[in-house]
């Protein structure tokens, strides 16, 4: 079997990050030097990315109802509403005793009020299905605790910029929308959908939190980072908070695919945004220490883009590039990229 055949067979493993470090390095080196395999790799990556287009579908609520009945747990069906088609699973408000316990786990502040583990007003016990497009009635001056234990669709402006309790969120879905409204859905203790203007401070906070959550999540194949990149790469929407969140993913995520997504996202942000600390620090850290040459190369590209975009790089960034350009043990392509980046810096 030729080198090329072996390398091609390794490409799916490279995509799923299943290769050990030596094989990974070997495959990357081959891809960099073999033009045909380089094209194959580009096709493989593009194909892999296109598979992301398949949307995640929600399980119809009646499936759970049927299962609970089969399991002899029909009494739990009281919490389900199986008859209303909606784009959000129609949960109902739960009885107060459950609400208290769940709210202890996670809570968000609304309208300037706060809530962290205790009720300030009695829960309404009547059932109120979540609205598909409706918005929470907000009384600006009233303290209005919202527990993430309930399912609802709310407007981002209803959220306080503070998220308490570091809730563990999963099943995140992001619709970038048309730039005027972004929609973020996720499971905390129940399913939430938050809609709002991407410039809104609360939406920025939520987006940052969701992106950073990717750093601690063990999931793979996530579209979260890519979706937010699409929203915030628009110069009119780009914000330092988002750059910072991408930076955190870049330095703390073990999953190489997500680090690559994070660094690519930083590359697409306007240079004046990505140069801000701590995003800039994350890029430098990645260039110095990331084990994946692809990440290091993209981080160098991001710095080069800042330099060509009229941003003056600080001494640490320049020294890092210089060090990489002359580091004998470094991947040749990384060294070349660093040298090219240095050539773009104006004295």
């Amino acid at each position: 079997m030729s080198d090329c055949e072996v390398m091609r067979e390794s490409m799916p493993l490279l995509l799923t990050e299943s290769l050990d470090a030596d094989r990974r390095e070997l495959t990357h080196r081959h891809i960099e030097t073999c033009e045909i395999c380089g094209e194959e790799w580009a096709d493989a990556k593009e194909t892999w990315a296109m598979l992301e287009e398949l949307p995640v579908v929600e399980v119809p609520p009646h499936v759970k109802a049927r299962f609970l009945e089969a399991a002899g747990l029909a009494d739990l069906n009281a919490d389900l509403d199986t008859g209303k088609p909606s784009n959000v699973i129609p949960f109902h408000r739960r009885p107060a005793f459950k609400w208290v316990a769940q709210a202890a786990a996670v809570a968000v502040m609304v309208g300037g009020g706060w809530f962290a583990g205790h009720r300030t007003a009695p829960a309404r016990s009547e059932r109120t299905p979540a609205m598909v497009t409706g918005r929470m009635p907000i009384v600006p001056s009233a303290i209005q605790p919202i527990s993430l234990s309930e399912t609802r669709v709310i407007d981002a402006s209803a959220l306080s910029p503070t998220i308490e309790g570091r809730p563990d969120i999963t099943n995140v879905a992001v619709d970038p929308g048309n730039g005027e409204e972004v929609t973020v859905s996720f499971d905390a203790t129940s399913h939430w959908t938050v809609k709002g203007n991407p410039r809104d401070k609360s939406m920025l906070k939520l987006a940052s939190y969701v992106i950073e959550n990717e750093a601690s999540s063990g999931s793979t194949g996530s579209t979260t980072i890519e979706s937010f990149r699409r929203v915030y790469s628009d110069p009119a929407l780009a914000a330092p908070e988002i750059a910072s969140a991408f930076g955190k993913v870049l330095v703390s995520q073990e999953h190489e695919g997500k680090r690559i997504q994070a660094v690519e996202s930083l590359k697409t942000l306007p240079p004046t945004i990505s140069v801000a600390s701590p995003a800039q620090g994350a890029l430098i850290e990645a260039i110095k220490n990331d084990p994946n040459p692809d990440v290091r190369i993209k981080a160098i590209d991001a710095l080069a883009r800042q330099a060509t975009g009229g941003v003056k790089l600080d001494a640490e960034a320049v020294n890092t590039l210089r060090q990489k350009a002359f580091e004998a043990d470094e991947n040749l392509y990384v060294r070349r990229k660093a040298a090219e980046a240095l050539s773009t810096i104006k004295p």
Binding site: P55, V56, E58, P85, N87, A173, D175, T183, S185, T193
Partner: peptide, 12 residues
């Protein structure tokens, strides 16, 4: 066509 989040009507 299954119900999915978010609603497609929210996009252009």
């Amino acid at each position: 066509v299954l119900v999915m989040l978010p609603a497609s009507s929210d996009t252009s």
